[in-house]
């Protein structure tokens, strides 16, 4: 999970170290620190920090320490790293099968969203269906690879994966 925060620090020595220390203490990985010396609000200096943490739980612990240390958090953006889901299947694919695939994918853990687009009629032997979306874990892509491989082998579809 990647996090970007705008902090407001008191203009006294040791404040920046005190703000960054809980990130490392919670196994976070600091990716960037930008000091805005000219941007003073209420006597505090603006600092922008980008870091990675393993979980929301770890982020909450960091925020708790900041609260105790009176580090103002002016703005916080957090976003998960995502992995693209890209599969194209070709063959005799009934509409029910497309619904079944959609349901199965929606119920999978760590699938953030999916979109299914398809062409051709339900009776066509060469219907093409494109499944795109995002997964929040790399391991999910391996599970999806397996899911589509098995499905394609069972129903004799041609499977076209995206390039990793």
């Amino acid at each position: 999970m990647k996090v970007n925060v705008d902090l407001r620090l008191k203009d006294i020595p040791g404040q920046l170290v005190g703000a960054l220390e809980p990130i490392s203490a919670n196994d976070g990985n600091i990716r960037g620190v930008v000091h805005h010396h000219d941007d003073r609000v209420g006597g505090r200096i603006a600092v922008n920090v980008t870091f990675e943490v393993r979980s929301e739980h770890a982020l909450n612990k960091i925020l708790e320490v900041w609260r105790k240390r009176e580090v103002d958090v002016a703005k916080i953006d957090s976003f998960f790293e995502t992995f693209p889901i890209q599969y194209l299947i070709v063959g005799s694919i009934p509409t029910k099968e497309l619904e079944s695939i959609t349901k199965a994918l929606e119920s999978m853990e760590n699938v953030a969203f999916i979109e299914v687009r398809y062409t051709g009629s339900a009776n066509s032997s060469s219907r093409a269906a494109l499944v795109t979306g995002k997964a929040s874990k790399k391991e999910t892509i391996a599970s999806l690879d397996q899911f589509f491989k098995q499905r394609s082998e069972k129903h004799d579809y041609i499977l076209i994966r995206g390039l990793d």
């Binding site: 194209l88 687009r117 398809y118 494109l130």
Partner: peptide, 22 residues
């Protein structure tokens, strides 16, 4: 091994919509 014998125009077009080629 999977070949290209059963790749259809539809499949090529769907990939194209995503700015991709097969």
């Amino acid at each position: 091994r999977t070949g290209i014998r059963n790749i259809t125009e539809d499949a090529i077009a769907l990939a194209g919509e995503q700015n991709k080629v097969i």
